[in-house]
Simulated scan of single mutants.
Amino acid sequence: MAETKIVVSVVETIKVIKFESTYNKEVKQLILSVLSEYGFSFHSEWDSDLDNIEATYSGRSGFWIAVDGSKIIGTSALLEYQNNNAILKRMYLSRTYRGKGIGYRLLDEAISFARTKMYSEILLDTTRTMVQAQKLYTAFGFIKTKEQDELIIYKLKLK
């Protein structure tokens, strides 16, 4: 009798879940690893949210992680901002998992959350070197609103 093999896509085994404090250390490590890959390092002012993710992203804010089994492979976050707007933050994915639709799922989770919270717009900033991320943002309808040096600002109108 011939043996039948079932092939399961890596993407099918990955879950996007709400952040829990038990993941704080691993999330911070992943984010700092991706930042390092692009030539950035921890900045105490800009990255202070990583030391208290649960408190920073509570209420009308949210933080999600992509997990492959018990391994954290990606993150996305939405932070409440002024005038009923939100800021997309912490959109990071481990290099080996890029280009497989996981970033899409993380971004979709954040945008869906923003819609349930009745936000008017989502703002985000990225750098010129994060080309794959820029393609993802424009695919979701984000519009480039400003470019300054290495920084690019995008906006998505929800209403």
Rank of each mutant, 00 (worst) to 15 (best):
M1D: 10
A2H: 13
T4A: 03
T4W: 03
V8T: 09
V11L: 10
T13I: 07
K18Q: 15
K18Y: 11
N24D: 13
K25W: 08
E26F: 05
E26A: 10
I31H: 01
S33M: 13
V34H: 02
V34P: 02
L35T: 05
S36W: 08
F40Y: 12
S41V: 15
F42D: 10
H43R: 06
E45W: 06
D49G: 04
L50M: 11
L50C: 03
L50Y: 05
L50N: 01
D51L: 14
D51T: 08
D51K: 12
N52E: 11
I53W: 02
E54V: 07
E54I: 07
Y57H: 01
Y57K: 00
S58P: 03
G59H: 03
R60C: 08
G62A: 15
G62Y: 04
W64A: 00
D68E: 12
S70W: 08
I72M: 12
L79D: 00
L79T: 03
N83C: 07
N84H: 04
I87T: 09
L88I: 08
L88F: 06
R90W: 03
M91A: 04
S94F: 07
T96F: 13
T96L: 14
Y97G: 03
G99E: 08
L106R: 01
L107R: 02
L107C: 05
D108I: 04
E109V: 10
A110L: 02
I111H: 00
F113S: 01
R115L: 07
L123I: 06
L124K: 00
D125Y: 10
T126W: 05
T126Y: 04
T127K: 05
T129Q: 13
M130V: 04
V131P: 03
A133E: 02
Q134K: 11
K135H: 13
A139W: 06
A139H: 10
F140G: 00
I143T: 09
K144I: 13
T145C: 10
T145Y: 07
E147T: 11
Q148F: 14
Q148H: 12
D149V: 10
E150Q: 13
L151V: 15
I152D: 09
Y154Q: 04
K157A: 13
K159H: 13
